[in-house]
Design a protein around this nucleic acid. Structure first.
Lengths: 204, 204
DNA sequence: GCATTATTTAATAGACTTATTAAATAAAGT
DNA sequence: ACTTTATTTAATAAGTCTATTAAATAATGC
């Protein structure tokens, strides 16, 4: 097991996939071991408990999700362009991992304490996102380019519009009987549409 | 147990609360029985299996959720007013039962077959919502009052904006440390804001 | 009152869960 | 080559879960 991938890593990858797909409760360490190709005890040997294994994964993913809203290296662009980039990078981060939204909202709901303990680990990240956007937004409002609005409202709208197409995919496909191909088109259209909706919503 | 509420009903109520709170997998018939104040076997006596009990509840709730988008008795109102009523009635239906969105998206994701079998039971309801809105929308587009847009896009936007505040409540409160009172205000503001965002998004 | 039916319980089968143990094998260090 | 350390497994404890059984109690019909 040295030419091959280290089993410790394989376990983590399999666990990531399964936790994201089915959530904490519905995934067993037995199943993780089976898919990784090892004994169930090995999962506990490397990660001690199912909880610790999960937390490591959860932490990594929430950083990706929140961090995608913190656009860097575009300070010189005009407000609308910066915002467009934020929305699109957030959308792309979710597209990379379409189960992310349900994963977070589901796991935080079923175990609010988890979020508390993760809060300390992710640190300033959420604050940075809020402060950065707050600053940019307030400036535009004072210039009269944007109608008065809180940063919370703006963020909620962005996240909301960006997650829906991924969140609703199974329900949507069942109801509309739309093909996978058609759905892909719709998803790509939504990315542009979301930017359009947000920009329109800001006009004074 | 006849002056009191019938145990069959109590079980259903408790099960509804627990399934909505924690989902199918995380809720045991043992727990339902305990909270209802009866023996675990009685849950199976009345509802045979955990699955059947769940399906009965799921079906009821999805009808409420989808049905709230089918506004009736306002055919004479102008388009924007009808749309406003739809958005608000959908928002209110969720407010009545804030765990509804996570419940659906979570359960459908973790068991897509469930949705398939429920599809037959709920019947035309989703089609009615789609057709009704399609008709109203196309009319406005042909009159030039609304920019070209599919009914899917409109519906996705509405549902998305309406669910986010309920879906994100635990995450949002942890990150922002906002008080319950402040959050209530924000939630009420969102209801108006959502109507505003949607109407702006339709302008030609 | 007695028989029939409905409601409820205790007990348990059988499967699955996480986590720990001790033992086996492989790798590395000297 | 021998010891120490890391990796892996089998076995199992202790608990949970759903579903079924047979037996007990309560309600109803006649």
């Amino acid at each position: 097991m040295s030419a091959e991938e280290k089993m410790e890593i394989t376990i983590l990858k399999v666990a990531t996939r399964l936790f994201l797909e089915k959530g904490f409760k519905a995934t067993s360490t037995t199943e993780i071991a089976k898919e990784a190709g090892c004994n169930q005890a090995l999962v506990h040997y490397y990660y001690r408990t199912k909880d610790k294994l999960f937390d490591a994964i959860f932490e990594k993913k929430i950083k990706v999700f929140i961090g995608s809203l913190l656009q860097i290296g575009h300070e010189d662009l005009p407000f609308e362009e910066k915002l467009k980039k934020k929305i699109e990078s957030h959308f792309d981060a979710i597209k990379e991992d379409p189960r992310l939204p349900l994963f977070f909202f589901g796991e935080i709901n079923s175990n609010p304490k988890r979020m508390e303990s993760i809060r300390e680990i992710i640190g300033d990240l959420p604050q940075m996102v809020l402060v950065q956007m707050q600053k940019e937004l307030d400036e535009e409002i004072s210039k009269g380019n944007v109608r008065p609005m809180t940063v919370y409202d703006l963020l909620l709208s962005i996240v909301s519009l960006n997650i829906i197409v991924f969140l609703a995919e199974p329900m949507f496909k069942t109801i509309t009987k739309i093909s996978d191909e058609e759905f892909s088109k719709l998803r790509e259209r939504r990315k542009k549409e979301n930017v359009e909706i947000i920009l329109r919503s800001l006009k004074p």
